[in-house]
Design a protein around this nucleic acid. Sequence first.
RNA 1: GGGCUCGUAGCUUAAUUGAAUAGAGCAUCUGACUACGGAUCAGAAGGUUGGGGGUUUGAAUCCCUCCGAGCCCGCCA
Length: 594
Amino acid sequence: MNLDSLLRGEIEQAITALFGKAPESIQLQPTNPEFEGSHTLVCFPLSRLSGKNPAETATTIGEYLVAHSRLVARYQVVKGFLNLILHDHAWIETLQSIYGQADYGIQPPTGEEIMVEFSSPNTNKPLHLGHLRNNFLGWSVSEVLTANGYKVHKVQIINDRGIHICKSMAAWTLYGEGETPESANIKGDHLVGNYYVMFDKAYRAQVTALIEKGVPEEQAEKEAPIMQLASEMLRKWEDKDPETVALWEKMNGWVYDGFDVTYRAMGVSFDKLYYESQTYLLGREIVLKGLEEGIFFRKDDGSVWVDLREEGLDEKVLLRADGTSVYMTQDIGTAVLRFNDFPNIVGQIYTVGNEQEYHFKVLFLILAKLGYDWAHRCYHLSYGMVDLPSGKMKSREGTVVDADDLIAEMVDEAEKQTRELGKVEEMSNEEARALYRMIGLGALKFFLLKVDPKKRMLFNPNESIQLQGFTGPFIQYTHARIRALLRKAEAAGIKGAVEGLENPTLEAAERDVVIVLSSFPEKVREAGATYSPAIVANYVYELAKSYNQFYQSIPVLSEADTARVRFRVALSEAVGRTIRTAMHLLGIDVPERM
RNA sequence: GGGCUCGUAGCUUAAUUGAAUAGAGCAUCUGACUACGGAUCAGAAGGUUGGGGGUUUGAAUCCCUCCGAGCCCGCCA
C-alpha cells in the first residue's frame, strides 16, 4: 500500500464521516512548490456535498484529518485548496519501503502477453532519422509495457518486395558492373540506397528526354526504359524467375547486413522478423471468407469491398478486380498470422507514423467486423514526423539525415566534450570508447523521446548535440556522481540505512527528493497506459534535478550524525537505482563514471 | 470537396480526464561555500497560451468562429 492510496482512503473516510456521504471522486494533486505541503485536495467540487463554501469545506476536512489521520501533521487552506503537510515519519517510511525494493517501480508479470511492432523499413535504402524516432519509441514502449507486467514480443515487418527494391535492382544491373559492399567498401544498405538514387536520377532524365520528344508526361513516365526494366523485374519476381529472385536475395542480403550494424549501434533487437515477401499473399482467403459471410461485398467488376459508411468512413477496396491483394489485405493477413503465431497475446501495438492513421483505423474496424475479439486491443502508436530546421526531410533533395551518420556524429561530440572536461585520463581506450557511445546515444535517445510521441517534432542538430540542461547526459552525470559518492561511502565503511534517526525530521531538500521518488510507480503506470516514454523522460529529469538540489545544499558524508549520514546514503542509493531503472525504460544506459 | 492533427517565452518544449501566480531547458545577464565530481547549483529577465466570442466558481485544456501549418481520403505500399 503506497502513501497516495493510504491518504486517499483517509480523506474519503473523513469526508464520509463529516458530510454523511462518500465523495464521487477525490481530486488529489501535487502541491504547487510555492506552498508548503505535498498533497493538495481540491475542495471546489466538495462544497455541494458539505453545503459550505470551498474554503470552509477545506478547513473542516483539514481539522478532521489532523485529529484523526496518522499521516497528516498540518494543513493550510488557500482558497478552495487544502494543502496537506504530512508527518516526516510518513516520508521516512516511504523511503524505507522504496529502499527495500531492488526493482522499485517495476510490476511483477501479470501473465498477459502483448506484441509491439516497430522499425519495419523498406529494403531499398538505409535507415534515417525518422526510423530512429520509430525504433527508440517502439523499444521504449516495449520496456515500459514490460515494467507494467506484460510479456512483450518485439517484431517488425520488413518490406522486402515490391517496386522499390526492383528499382535498386534495375539500376545495379545497368550501372553496377558487379559492385558489392566488399568491393566498394560501403555498408550494404548504403550501397543499395545509392542505386536507388541512381535509378531516380536516370529515370527522371529519361522522362524529361521523352517529354522533349513530344511524348505526353503520363506516357513518358511509363515508357522510360529504366522503369520498364524495374516493372519487368517485379513481374519476373512474382513469377519466381530464378535469376531475378537470386539478384533480389543478394541485394536484400546486403541491406540486412547493413541494418544489423545499425540496429546494433542503436541498441535495439527483435524477437521475430516478418517478411512481406512471405506474408503478402495472406489475407486473401480471410477476405473471401468474409465475403461469403456477407461482411464484405463484391462490385460488378469483381472487386471486393468493405462498407464502413456506418462507421463514418467510406468504402474501401480489399481485393482488386483481378483478384489480387492490396496493402490492407496484407495487413489483415499479417495480423491474423501473428495471433496464430503468438496465441496468448492480448493485442498488438503498431509503431507507425501518423500519416497512416486512417489506414489503421480502417484495419482495426475490419478486424472487428471479422469477429476477432482482439481487434479492440490493437493500437496504432502513431508518432509525428521529425522535421529539420530547413523543413521536411526529402530523400530526393538529399536532405535526409542518415541514421549511421547521426549516431557517429553524436558519439564524436560526446568524445570531444568528455576529453575537454578531462574526465577520461584514468580510463582504458576501450572503457572510454564505450563511454562516448553511451553518452552520445543517450543524448540522441533522450532528445527524441522526451517529446510527446504524437507531436511532430523539430530536430535541430545543434541542440540535440547539447549535453547540458534537459538532456540524457545531465541525468547520466547525476547517476555517475551518485555512484562516486557511494563508492566513497563504501570505502569508508558506511552503509545506507533508513532507520535509527534520533530526530525523525527531514530537511526540505531531503523531503522533496522523497516526494519525487514516491511518484515513480504511478509514472510508469501512466506511461504504459498512454504508450508515452516522454512521461518517463520528464520524470527522470525531475528526479535528477531534485536530487542535484539536495546534493548542492546538504552534505552527505561529512555530517557528524552517523544515522543521518546513513539515511542520506540510502536516499542517494535509492535515487541512483531509480534513475538507472527509468533510463533503462528509455533504452539508455547510465555510467559509473563520466 | 470530406476527415484528422497541431499553434504555449527569441528557440525547443511541459501542463490537454477543467483548478492556485502557465513549469522547464537552450540562448542572454548576475552569482556559488577550506562538503562529497562545476556535464552542477542559486538568481534575473523573458508569456494578452495564434485572434475573437461562448460555457464555468475556475479555461492553454471544453464549444463556436476566423487566421496559420501539416497529414489523410489510390484497384500504390
